[in-house]
Amino acid sequence: MEPEAVCALRDVSFTYPGAAAPAIQGLDLTIRRGEWVALVGANGSGKSTLAKILNALLIPTRGDCFSCGYRTDREEHHWAIRSRISMVFQNPDNQIVASVVEEDVAFGPENLGVSPGRIREIVRESLCQVGLEEKRRTPTYALSGGQKQRLAIAGALAMRPECLVLDEATAMLDPQGREDVLKILRELHSKGMTLVQITHRLEEILDATRVVVLRNGQIEWEGELPELFERVDRFPEWGLEIPPLVRLTGLLKKRKVLPASCLPSVKELLEHLCP
């Protein structure tokens, strides 16, 4: 495993019990410290399975997976892995354990055996990071969907992880809730946190440093975001939807209104169209 690697998968395959085909097949992937890796692909492409493998919630049926230097197939390593790689799931309602905001954030550090004083500090810091410090004593059922997901992120951050894995964490949120979560991710990444973001909304991965496209449990393509948008012709095959801005940019490039090298950002588009 490379010294800078947070996760390394070597020829990893995983088949769910009773399933005819593997969900993940011969996958090789390295996630380096400080990276923001976006895992994209159609439903059933193996994105969520891969996320669970990284967190040692699923153990590969073949191959080796190392998370934070620990082999995930050893049960004695699971606790160490999960305290370093935190996960945020799709439905916030299914990951909130406690009935009061601060108690839920404290759940992880309590499991790690952190001292009460330090837990209170961590809870305060984590709630500040997600902008929920004023909701500290609020019942969790009284939060909005976006606030619940921010609470789930605070719960994950309270573990003081090296890497945060988000499994379609914005899928059930309204546009404002999505933007709030993405803002938190941008801030975490700017502070050096390694992020693995699973999504099928390409407009949400504009800040990712690397994109991995999964198809039928295999890596179909991997590279940087601008390169991905040069391959829009393959999007239907990969089960990806072309974002409206990318579609517009593509059309403008075809009509030579925009240069071929232009990146699909609103700012650049504006600069070209309204100099």
């Binding site: 999960r82 990951q95 354990v97 759940f107 992880g108 550090p109 309590e110 009460p116 837990i119 719960g155």
Partner: peptide, 25 residues
């Protein structure tokens, strides 16, 4: 939901009462 919650608790290092501390003892 029960299955998802169990997974989420496991991901947050829950392994029963042993070694667990409390924010407010």
């Amino acid at each position: 939901r029960a299955e998802d919650l169990a997974l989420a608790m496991e991901a947050r290092c829950y392994r029963g009462g042993s070694g667990r501390t409390r924010m407010n003892p």
